[in-house]
Design a protein around this nucleic acid. Structure first.
Length: 432
DNA sequence: TCAAATGATTTACC
DNA sequence: GGTAAATCATTTGA
């Protein structure tokens, strides 16, 4: 059996028509008459046509017989010539296809998410980006972060395993097909172009499978990402301590409850609000607080009194501890919650006012309140505060809220203790 | 289960 | 860009 595959690298086509066959017929080994030649060719063709009807052993034997047949080289040359013409006609269809834009998008996304390409810390960059985009509250941020990373890493691993499997299967199949073609090249002419084309068809088929894999991976990443982002967006209440800290600041700055960026940062730190957008949460909180306070001052009165009392107690203790410091302008806010610079005279006024008022009956404040009041009155008068009002026997008042509902430029703070007050009452003006 | 509380978002305004 | 106001959506507590 001829072991050399007869690929179409060269074939002795010299005559028009069927030169190989003609040559073969001229070499004297063929039949001496036309009838005999026709019979030979008819036999060969018949054998080829019926080859599939035979058993494997029969076919192998027949194949061997055909390969050894004296007419075979001539017939092969004829096939080569026909093939040459056919290949010319399909050549145009083999142009390189431009890369699918969808595939490019998928590839880019997988690269950006850290799923494809070199390992980038298990997608920590993507997780960080997601976290930064969403903001968040609390110390469990890092836990969720690592959870995201772990899941992304899992996706990456599955993706690469599957990709490897597909590539392996593709290579195996390509090898198999090439072996088949090589085998077939013994009985029919097969050009390198044809093999190349077959390989590219196989690759295209497999790449479409790969695209499905990439698509699924992208979907998985998107779902993971959206879940992660949703989780970050999910409302989570501030813990009690954080709320207290924020409330303390709010009520101690009631005349101007607009924390500066630095104050927001400080508050966020104290509230253990981490991540880059901490200020955002604080801003939300103050925004909500302001509007809700203003809408329903009465409801917040008790709360305000409580925080005012705390502030005053703190201020008192500070003063008592260091009266030599004589600095009521920098009292601490209550207890262990931390201290803010509450130098706003109006705020202190509010605090003391509540202590000095009717409603606050706690009695836990030291006996030196009056001296505090005197000291503060001095400070307040220096800063253009409400020294006149200080003498009044009131609960804290929502000072700062002007008659237009605004906080600043409130010239005459009014009491909120009496809902039956006149039209000038802040209560009636600011509650909806 | 439901109402209240509350954090987040949206829209309009300055 | 910051804020008020309205609204949404979720959590909390009875």
């Amino acid at each position: 059996m001829d072991e050399q595959p007869r690929l179409m690298h060269s074939h002795g086509v010299g005559m028009a028509g069927h030169p190989g066959l003609a040559q073969h017929m001229q070499d004297g080994t063929a039949g001496t008459d036309g009838e005999g030649r026709k019979q030979d060719i008819g036999d060969i063709l018949q054998q080829i046509m019926t080859i599939t009807d035979q058993s494997l052993d029969e076919a192998q034997a027949r194949k061997h017989a055909l390969n050894c047949h004296r007419m075979k080289p001539a017939l092969f040359n004829v096939l080569c010539e026909i093939k040459e013409k056919t290949v010319l006609s399909i050549r145009g269809a083999q142009e390189e296809e431009p890369q699918d834009p969808q595939l490019m998008r998928l590839d880019n996304m997988l690269l950006a998410e850290g799923v494809a390409g070199p390992e980038k810390g298990g997608g920590s960059a993507a997780a960080a980006a997601a976290a930064a985009a969403a903001g968040g509250i609390g110390a469990d941020n890092s836990a969720e972060h690592s959870d995201y990373r772990a899941k992304l890493s899992q996706i990456r691993q599955i993706y690469h395993t599957e990709l490897e499997k597909y590539e392996q299967a593709c290579n195996e199949f390509t090898t198999h097909v090439m072996n088949l073609l090589r085998e077939q090249s013994r009985t029919r002419p097969i050009s390198p172009k044809e093999i190349e084309r077959m390989v590219s068809i196989i690759h295209r088929k497999f790449s479409s499978i790969q695209m499905q894999l990439k698509q699924s991976t992208c979907e998985a990443v998107m779902i993971l990402r959206s879940r992660f982002l949703d989780a970050r967006r999910k409302r989570r209440n501030f813990n009690k301590q954080a709320t207290e800290i924020l409330n303390e600041y709010f009520y101690s700055h009631l005349s101007n409850p607009y924390p500066s960026e630095e104050a927001k940062e400080e508050l966020a730190k104290k509230c253990s609000i981490t991540v880059s957008q901490f200020g955002f949460c604080v801003s939300n909180w103050f925004g909500n607080k302001r509007i809700r306070y203003k809408k329903n001052i009465g409801k917040f009165q008790e709360e305000a009194n409580m925080y005012a009392a705390r502030t005053a107690v703190s201020a008192t203790s500070v003063s008592a501890q260091g009266s030599q410091a004589n600095s009521p302008s920098t009292p601490n806010s209550a207890g262990s919650a931390g201290s803010f610079n509450m130098s706003n005279s109006g705020d202190l006024f509010m605090s003391v006012q509540s202590l000095n008022g009717d409603s606050y009956q706690g009695g836990q404040v030291g006996a030196n309140i009056q001296s505090q009041v005197d000291t503060l009155r001095h400070v307040i008068s220096q800063t253009g505060g409400y020294s006149d009002s200080l003498a009044a026997s009131q609960m804290y008042s929502p000072q700062g809220i002007n008659t237009n509902g605004g906080w600043q430029d409130a010239p005459t703070p009014s009491s909120v203790t009496s809902p039956t007050e006149g039209p000038g009452s802040v209560h009636s003006d600011t509650s909806n």
